[in-house]
Amino acid sequence: MEKRINIFAKGQGAMKAMFGLGAYLAKSNLEESLLNLISFRVSQINGCCYCLDMHSKDLRARGESEQRLYLLNAWREAPVYSDRERAAFAWAEAVTKIEGGQVPDEIYQDAIKQFSEEELIDLTLAVITINGYNRVNIAFPNKVGNYQPGQFAVHN
């Protein structure tokens, strides 16, 4: 593969805008573990190796079980996730996989039972944010495997 632009070195202004979304989400009422699980699941859908490496390490460092990580791709059948997590996964998938247009009413109804209006807006922003990071990392790949847990935890 031909050497690509180092987005973190050459695109600092663009990345600062992206980091601002992360800083906002870090102050939201959504659980950090849920945000990381959503980032991991969306990265699975998008095939973003760098983000999968990052979020799996962050999740493990914060005590997430291996079983829950291994089963995330089959969350509908796996009994290890809460109703809140399941609603978040369905929401994240519907917002990520946009081939059908709007999020189906059934998924919205399940989500609004588990999340306040503000939380659902923030969950949507979290899905948008990780989709953006996935696309940045797919366009300008970073070396996978060097990420250290918490490396990008705080961005102001």
Rank of each mutant, 00 (worst) to 15 (best):
Arg62Pro: 00
Asn73Met: 04
Cys51Asp: 00
Arg68Leu: 00
Trp75Gln: 04
Ala61Cys: 02
Ser56Asn: 14
Glu77Ala: 09
Cys48Asn: 10
Arg86Val: 13
Tyr70Trp: 08
Cys48Leu: 13
Val80Met: 01
Leu59Ile: 02
Arg62Trp: 03
Val80Cys: 12
Ala61Ile: 04
Tyr50Thr: 03
Asp58Met: 10
Asp53Cys: 01
Leu59Cys: 10
Arg62Phe: 05
Pro79Trp: 09
Phe89His: 13
Ala90Leu: 12
Asp58Cys: 14
Met54Ile: 07
His55Phe: 10
Glu85Lys: 10
Glu85Ile: 05
His55Gly: 02
Asp53Met: 06
Tyr50Ile: 10
His55Met: 07
Ala61Lys: 03
Pro79Gln: 07
Phe89Tyr: 15
Cys49Leu: 14
Leu71Asp: 12
Ala74Arg: 06
Asp58Asn: 15
Gly63Cys: 02
Tyr50Asn: 08
Ala90Glu: 15
Pro79Arg: 12
Pro79Phe: 09
Tyr50Glu: 05
Ala87Pro: 04
Ser65His: 05
Arg68Asp: 03
Ser56Arg: 14
Asp53Tyr: 04
Ser65Gln: 10
Trp75Asp: 07
Asp53Arg: 07
His55Trp: 06
Tyr81Val: 11
Glu64His: 12
Gln67Leu: 14
Ser82Thr: 15
Asn73Trp: 05
His55Lys: 02
Ala88Pro: 02
Asp58Thr: 08
Lys57Asp: 02
Gln67Asp: 15
Glu64Val: 11
Tyr70His: 12
Cys48Trp: 10
Leu52Gln: 14
Phe89Gln: 08
Glu64Ser: 05
Glu77Pro: 06
Phe89Gly: 07
Asp53Thr: 11
Lys57His: 06
Cys51Thr: 05
Cys51Ile: 06
Tyr50Ser: 03
Glu66Ile: 10
Leu72Ser: 13
Phe89Met: 07
Glu85Leu: 09
Ser56Met: 13
Glu77Val: 10
Ser65Val: 09
Trp75Val: 00
Ala88Asn: 00
Arg76Asp: 11
Leu52Cys: 11
Leu71Trp: 09
Ala74His: 06
Pro79Tyr: 11
Val80His: 05
Cys49Lys: 11
Arg62His: 13
Cys51His: 01
Ser82Lys: 00
Gln67Cys: 08
Cys48Phe: 01
Arg76Met: 06
Tyr70Ile: 14
Ala88Cys: 10
Leu59Lys: 07
Glu77Leu: 11
Arg60Val: 12
Ala87Met: 13
Arg62Asp: 03
Cys49Ala: 15
Cys48Lys: 02
Ser56Phe: 07
Gly63Trp: 01
Ala74Tyr: 12
Leu52Arg: 04
Ala61Gly: 03
Glu64Arg: 13
Arg62Ala: 08
His55Glu: 06
Asp58Pro: 09
Ala78Lys: 03
Asn73Tyr: 04
Gly63Phe: 04
Trp75His: 08
Glu66Phe: 11
Arg62Ser: 04
Ala88Gly: 15
Asp83Ile: 02
Leu72Lys: 05
Ala74Asp: 06
Ala78Pro: 00
Met54Arg: 04
Arg86Phe: 02
Ala61Trp: 06
Cys49Ser: 15
Leu69Ile: 09
Arg86Asp: 03
Ala90His: 07
Ser56Gly: 15
Asp53Phe: 00
Ala90Ser: 14
Leu71Ser: 15
Ser82Asp: 01
Tyr50Trp: 13
Gln67Met: 14
Asp58Arg: 11
Glu77Tyr: 07
Glu64Cys: 02
Cys51Leu: 03
Val80Asp: 00
